[in-house]
Write a protein that binds this DNA or RNA. Structure first.
Lengths: 334, 334
DNA sequence: ATGAAAGCGCTAACAT
DNA sequence: ATGTTAGCGCTTTCAT
């Protein structure tokens, strides 16, 4: 591949001069600049990022840590983040983290050897070691979709959001409400917390048998969770599935059991993934402000990379989207 | 950050020796090796990839070209590809391509400046320039999910797969069948082609008014497509949606119009994305062999990078998955 | 305004 | 078995 020396030789100037025009520096004869530009064009020269980043000590790359089994919401989110990052001149490289939390050591090594300018965490890693190690090598970190002490975090108030979803159910007359969640991520725990707060506020007694914790947040596990709930024979009239995908699976299990949603059981999800509004029934859910989440995250990282401002916790507004999967409970069933 | 010289100094040896143990070379005293390893461990030294790739002229990175608005099937696929690539020692970096095909020039520049060892195309780019440019810089390319002349391609036979899906409908007694597809990608065109072949084989006359081409392959556009079809008032009894997401939207529009699936209209999708088996109704669809597709793709790239074998076209078997969204047409409606 | 030279962190001959 | 040296492609002083 053609390099900067080749260009220099072809135009009969020094590499420094070529470098200057590539980087848009001043102090170079307009005439020569034109000449260099045209040779670059005709040879198809493209700077070697590895070489450049070595001297600059900047890679213009940001790493995104994301679970290997990322869900649709995360998928949508990172597309948006990528777009903003791109507009700031960064490339994006993925660092997949095992959902079960193993392999953190390797993850850390991979990150360090790649030397991104910053890290966006879309996957929660609990070990404080992870963050302190990153801090130790002066790698700015931003977390999105969850809160982490001492680093900029962009997220909704999960607990309040869940509270709103469950309160909607309560306002509809439901009193016997179940919840299906995963246990792995803190958003799951926080949403369950919000669930309990809503019950409490309504004076509904806490009943641990109404919470089902499953292995992950997919439709498949939503189905398993609901089957389990059905087996327990608890006579709930509504379910809060902590994720839209969980909700999809839960509805499936309900209908398999001959129960209609929302006729017999109301279901509310969380995230408002892009197909939620097209499902049968259309899902009532809590929307996270995807666009804003992505924008703020990319911006926070950009600032952090440029030594900018204080690490701030940014809480974005959620929104309850009422669609067809929830319905007022008839008086006689209350 | 600590570098190889630091390590060398601390153990009182030369950088070469340190380099040798890092790279697992022989010809180094077992005793010294231990010493070096322990210092590496305690300092948390991690090699700098940029520096290493500069001298090795290998980045141990593979680029994945994927549409910025990638669908669920592509999302699932690349997770699998990434896993295999990782096991071969590669990192994965994304190169998002605009769905509308703009910005190819920039894409090419980004790829070249990043200098991956190879490229996997999950997004079809039509311009021959793109491939010849990559070939010009000796960058191995593999395409997955679509065929491209002269490069290894791993994909199903889209036309035959679509043929099978539509034939299933025909075997169920349907004669008036519509198709919803996007026009952008060749898989869309090929699936429509398979649709027509199935009709032809069954002696059903070709009717162009039964094909709807929409802007992309999402549920949203599937809904629009179906509305359009309904407006035309064609009295079809079955629909082939060229993508599961398109099918989701189509079913939505059908039900909104008071039509039941599969009671009134049968629907078959394509891809078998992970939620298809949980939807209401569970989707009849054509499954692409995701795991094999991912494995073969990663392997083909790995081989191509290592100067290996002939560029081959690999066609993988698809499979018709019959679920609930299709049903035999009652005799009286034929 | 331009060029020469040093150096980023690493590996691979080439010596020894 | 180990150290010395050169060099990967680039940017940036420092001269001029």
């Amino acid at each position: 591949m053609v390099n900067i020396k080749d260009i220099a030789r072809r135009v009969g100037m020094s590499p420094s001069t070529v470098s200057r025009v590539i980087n848009g520096k001043n102090h170079v004869n307009a005439f020569k600049r034109e000449r260099i530009l045209s040779v670059i064009e005709e040879t198809g020269y493209v700077p070697n990022n590895a070489a450049r980043s070595m001297v600059l000590k900047r890679s213009f790359t940001v790493g995104i840590v994301i679970p290997d089994a990322f869900n649709m919401f995360q998928r949508q989110l990172f597309s948006i983040i990528e777009r903003y990052l791109d507009s700031f001149g960064y490339h994006t490289v993925f660092f997949f983290a095992k959902f079960d939390g193993s392999g953190e050591k390797e993850l850390l090594a991979r990150i360090q050897s790649e030397r991104p300018d910053g890290i966006i965490m879309l996957h929660e890693i609990r070990e404080g070691d992870f963050y302190s190690c990153l801090a130790g090598v002066k790698l700015p970190v931003v977390t999105a979709t969850f809160y982490r002490d001492a680093v900029p975090s962009i997220h909704v108030n999960e607990t309040e959001a869940a509270f709103d979803g469950v309160t909607h159910l309560i306002n509809l007359g439901h009193r016997r409400i179940s919840v299906i969640s995963g246990s792995e991520c803190s958003f799951g725990r926080q949403r369950v917390e919000g669930f309990f707060r809503a019950l409490e506020q309504a004076g509904i007694p806490r009943d641990e048998s109404q919470v089902i914790l499953v292995g992950n947040y997919t439709a498949e596990f939503g189905m398993y969770g609901m089957r389990e709930l059905l087996l327990r024979n608890g006579d709930f009239t509504a379910v809060f599935a902590v994720t839209d995908e969980l909700a999809i699976g839960a509805i499936r299990a309900l209908e398999d059991a001959g129960l209609d949603v929302p006729g017999d059981i109301s279901v509310v999800g969380f995230d408002d993934i892009d197909i939620s509004g097209f499902l049968m029934p259309r899902l009532t859910t809590i929307r996270q402000p995807l666009g804003e989440l992505g924008e703020k995250t990319a911006l926070a990282l950009h600032r952090a990379v440029n030594g900018g401002g204080a690490a701030k916790d940014i809480v974005l507004p959620h929104k309850l989207i009422i669609r067809e999967s929830t319905r007022a409970l008839p008086r006689r069933r209350r």
